[in-house]
Amino acid sequence: MSVKYAPVLWNRNKYLYDAVLLAGVIGYIYLYTSVGPFYQDVTRPIDGAVLRMRAFGSCAFLMLTIILCIGPLARLDRRFLPLLYNRRHFGVLTAAVAAVHANYVLGWYFNFSPTDRYVALLSSNTSYGQVLGFPFETLGIAALLILFILAATSHDFWLSFLGAPLWKALHMLIYPAYAFVVLHVALGALQGPDDPVFTSVVAASVLLVGGLHFAAGRAEMAADNYQADASSEVEALEQGGWIVVCDVGEIESNRAKVVSVPGHDRVAVWKYKGKLSALSNACAHQNGPLGEGRIIDGAITCPWHGYQYQPEDGRSPAPFTEKISTYRLMLVGTTILLDPNPQAPGTYVEPVVIGEAS
């Protein structure tokens, strides 16, 4: 509950999540190294180290693809939210798998170099002025460094130490890391012997990640630009600066509708016990999306780590002292309108009674 640093304790869901992750990685590596050689179009058997190198490298690429798909999938369908909550564990394991791939690369190509293998890696190809033959190794190194930074700062200590805005901005580096990995693969592995399967996998990954983010963005834009059938009273309120949220029937009980306000802030409008309340959509702990959570035992519960707030005043239940901004609402017929001006964090705002409109 507290935004002060405290370890997030393990639970059954976390153990199950990590067990499935480990089983998936082990199963993929086993299948690639045991079944994959039968589908290699080569005249000589592939060395075991090379096979493991490719297995771990392709596994890390697929894991990074899945990580970047979880976010937009959760935006499009709430059933994917459980995958989102412990996504940091997925990222840490991805960094570990990528590190094993890098170790095999160094061991195979540079272990017997007369110079230090790290020096040899960076100095063996310096043709940065061309596309074909570009030293793709540096792109892989850049991606690996980013993954290490994200894994090392994934703990809540760093969230508390850096602050939520900086921590979140830092972890947006996952997108440059993915771009570096795609370029690393395109300029490296795909320049070798024709491999239509892997080429198709890379192309499908780019299309899938891009397509899901585009679809999620369109859905968010449609929600943000929602316009209800406005009466003259609603139109007058809009001219006065109020924002149309939606029809009251569109919000499920104990759930929220998230709406954007000027300045790119987001507000969660909650429906509960025949009433409506509006609070900031950003959890005080990690800027988690409160509007994707639900009301449990009368308290708004963040889906990321369970931080709770009272819907009427945005305060955490005692003995905790965290608080977030509240907003005024108005109900005209069945249309919900929001005053975009936030109240001071922890300010009590009288809930709107839905009555027959529910």
Score class of each variant (00 low, 15 high):
Lys273Cys: 08
Cys283Asp: 05
Gly288Cys: 15
Val352Lys: 02
Trp304His: 09
Ala236Trp: 08
Leu9Tyr: 06
Phe198Pro: 11
Ala228Leu: 14
Phe148Pro: 05
Ala99Tyr: 01
Tyr5Asn: 10
Asp339Tyr: 07
Ser205Phe: 01
Lys271His: 06
Leu173Pro: 00
Ser123His: 10
Ser127Tyr: 10
Val245Ser: 01
Phe38Gly: 15
Val20Thr: 07
Gly240Glu: 15
Leu22Arg: 12
Leu144Ala: 10
Thr335Leu: 06
Ala169Trp: 15
Thr326Phe: 02
Ala142Arg: 02
Val8Met: 11
Gly355Ile: 09
Trp242Ala: 11
Asn281Lys: 07
Leu290His: 07
Ala98Asp: 04
Arg328Pro: 01
Pro311Lys: 12
Ser205Gln: 01
Arg12Ser: 13
Tyr109Val: 10
Val35Asp: 07
Gly241Ala: 06
Val20Ile: 15
Gly211Ala: 11
Leu279Asp: 03
Arg255Ser: 02
Thr335Val: 13
Tyr32Pro: 13
Asp41Val: 12
Ala169Gln: 12
His305Tyr: 15
Leu337Thr: 10
Leu121Ile: 04
Gln227Ser: 14
Phe148Trp: 15
Ala95Glu: 05
Leu208Thr: 09
Met330Asn: 03
Lys4Phe: 14
Ser160Val: 12
Val258Pro: 05
Gly129Pro: 08
Trp304Asn: 08
Leu331Tyr: 00
Ile296Gln: 13
Pro289Ile: 14
Glu233Gln: 15
Asp116Asn: 10
Gly293Ile: 04
Ile251Thr: 11
Tyr307Gly: 07
Tyr30Leu: 12
Val202Leu: 08
Tyr85His: 15
Leu73His: 03
Val267Tyr: 01
Ala143Met: 07
Ile146Ser: 02
Val20Tyr: 08
Ser316Tyr: 05
Val119Cys: 00
Val269Leu: 11
Phe161His: 14
Ile336Met: 04
Phe134Trp: 04
Pro37Ser: 04
Ala215Met: 12
Thr94Leu: 13
Ala318Trp: 00
Thr199Tyr: 00
Asn103Ile: 15
Asn254Ser: 06
Arg12Thr: 13
His264Ile: 12
Val42Tyr: 14
Arg54Leu: 13
Gly129Phe: 09
Ala204Arg: 04
Trp10Tyr: 11
Lys323Thr: 07
Tyr17Asp: 08
Ala177Pro: 07
Leu187Ala: 00
Asn111Cys: 00
Ala98Arg: 07
Phe136Lys: 03
Gly293Ser: 06
Pro37Lys: 03
Ala164Phe: 10
Ala19Thr: 02
Ala236Leu: 14
Thr321Gln: 05
